[in-house]
Amino acid sequence: MPPYFESIKSFEDVPITDKGVDTVTFLEAAEGLVKIFVLLGSTAFATVVSDLKGNIAKVRARYDAAPSKSGTLEELVINEPADDKKRTATQGLLWLTRGLSFTCKALQNAQKNKNEELSVAFTKGYEGSLKQFHTFVVKGVFSLAMKACPYRAAFYEKLAADPNGGPPSSQDKVSQDMDKWLAALHNIVTRLEGFYEAGGHAKGF
Rank of each mutant, 00 (worst) to 15 (best):
G99Q: 06
G99C: 07
L100T: 12
L100F: 15
S101F: 06
T103N: 01
T103I: 09
C104D: 15
C104M: 13
A106L: 08
L107Q: 05
L107S: 02
Q108G: 11
N109L: 03
A110L: 04
A110P: 06
A110S: 13
Q111T: 14
K112S: 15
K112P: 14
N113I: 02
K114W: 03
N115S: 12
E116L: 11
E116R: 06
E116D: 12
E117A: 11
E117W: 02
S119V: 01
S119I: 00
S119L: 02
V120M: 04
A121S: 13
A121Q: 00
F122H: 01
F122C: 08
K124S: 07
K124I: 10
G125C: 02
G125H: 05
G125R: 04
Y126N: 09
G128C: 07
G128V: 08
L130G: 12
Q132A: 11
Q132T: 12
F133T: 13
F133E: 11
F133I: 02
H134M: 03
H134S: 13
H134T: 11
T135M: 10
F136M: 15
F136A: 15
F136C: 08
V137G: 10
V138K: 08
V138H: 11
V138Y: 14
K139Q: 14
K139N: 15
F142S: 06
F142N: 06
S143H: 04
L144Y: 14
L144T: 06
L144W: 07
A145T: 06
A145G: 04
M146I: 01
K147S: 08
K147E: 02
K147F: 05
K147L: 15
A148Y: 00
A148I: 00
A148T: 00
A148W: 02
A148C: 01
C149W: 01
C149H: 00
C149V: 00
C149Y: 05
P150K: 04
A153R: 09
A153D: 12
F155I: 00
F155P: 01
Y156I: 09
E157W: 05
K158H: 00
L159P: 01
L159M: 09
L159I: 03
A160T: 05
A161Y: 04
A161F: 04
A161S: 11
P163M: 03
P163W: 02
P163N: 11
P163V: 03
N164F: 07
P167D: 14
P167I: 01
P168C: 11
S169K: 13
S170T: 15
S170Y: 10
S170G: 12
S170W: 07
S170F: 05
Q171E: 09
Q171G: 08
D172R: 11
K173V: 14
K173C: 13
K173E: 14
V174I: 09
S175V: 11
S175A: 14
Q176N: 15
